[in-house]
Design a binder for these strands. Sequence first.
RNA 1: GGAGGGGUGCCGGAGUGGUUAAUCGGAGCAGACUGUAAAUCUGCCGCUCGGAAGGGCUACGCAGGUUCGAACCCUGCCCUCUCCA
Length: 405
Amino acid sequence: METNKFSNQDINRLLKRGVCEVIVKEELVTALKSGKVLRLKEGFDPSFPDIHLGHMVGLKKLREFQDIGHQVVLIVGDWTAQIGDPSGASVTRPMLSAEHVKTNAKTYMEQFFKIVDKEKTEVRWQSEWFGNFNLADVIKLTSKFTIAQILARDDFSKRYNANQPITITEFLYPLLQAYDSVAIKADVEFGGTDQKFNLLVGRELQTMLGQRPQQVLMVPLLVGTDGVHKMSKSLGNYIGVAESPENIFGKVMSIPDGIIMNYFELITCVSDQELDEFRQLLDKNAVNPMELKKRLGREIVTKLHDAKSAITAEEHFAKVVQNKEIPNEIEECFFNLDSSMDLKELLTSINLAKSRSDAGRLISQGAVSIDGSVVVCNSMKLESGCVIKVGKRRFAKIINSDIIK
RNA sequence: GGAGGGGUGCCGGAGUGGUUAAUCGGAGCAGACUGUAAAUCUGCCGCUCGGAAGGGCUACGCAGGUUCGAACCCUGCCCUCUCCA
């Protein structure tokens, strides 16, 4: 099987937009030109089954490689999941049950294949090779690297210098990931720039074991909706691939103006020429950034859902956020309105407030309104079918639970 | 094995016997404003009772102790870091 023929210009484009660094670039270019189908490795940790836009940068690039004929190998990190990627201050995690790993992997793949072509993807589980590992194998693997080498990784050295604990299992993480490359004979491994160390260990181990070292393609880290930190679930500044169109659109609208172009470039397919136009418009203040953000939101929702959802999501945003109106669809909540009505109780029980104290706070801050009028006291008469609004965008339609009986 | 640090609310990090539900920063929430769920400003930010004023309960690694009173002092334990071996 051969890949499609394509020019230097195509290769340039492929390795430029949304790519941070390629090691070794000349070799990858040669490999791409050779016409050989390359095995593109991408791994994931099934303890975090949710994909967000940050991951999408790399997945989109994988897709581009697929579209010209290359093969993706998706690795389910059912062993590394138990260690936890040492980038944070994470510690060894409890073993996930086999069942749990399975359901997480399923969830992950549903999201993964929204972007990557399922037909051109081979799914492999780490346990296929690590399941048979014994202590001798572990010793053989670990003896190939030194502590000094491992400590060269930025995350490790930072923690080490800050007198924070690092377990030996965490040191194992890069080695396991590297061995994956050997096991599947990877030609190229994809990852964020924060993965550089692990990716390079893969190259080393492959060389040691007589394989051709994989090429490493690093994609930039996407900044989160806060505009400051990298997008991550634990920081809460993420936009999930599986979220509703309304949520995705709204979250896109909440990004700071300064990172609009960054998002366009990394996670949409809007052409380079058009992006240049946008940049000029922004520079000259010739466009309201909000309009560009709306376009961005439409692009992203279309990619993750479809064009129709994008339109609905935008309408929803205009209606609810900009005009402060009530959305078309409101979740119905059942509550017994008869007995001595207690609004705090109601808000808490339908999850519009965390606790009765929280509900009290919201009421006193004027955040709660019923059918458009702001509530000032706790006890009041409610009609079945009334709409409660809390804050800017939390709504519930209250149905008297007695009626349906 | 020895010596010395450290464990505080979602996170970072003050506080070393009472006025501490615990300074401050970040996150989060709300209101105002706006060009948006941007930015900015203001307020809130353990649970619970109360319309409010105010009250009760729980909380500073764990378990005890001293004291009228402890995040703060003492004892033991657990976790963790550094240095020496």
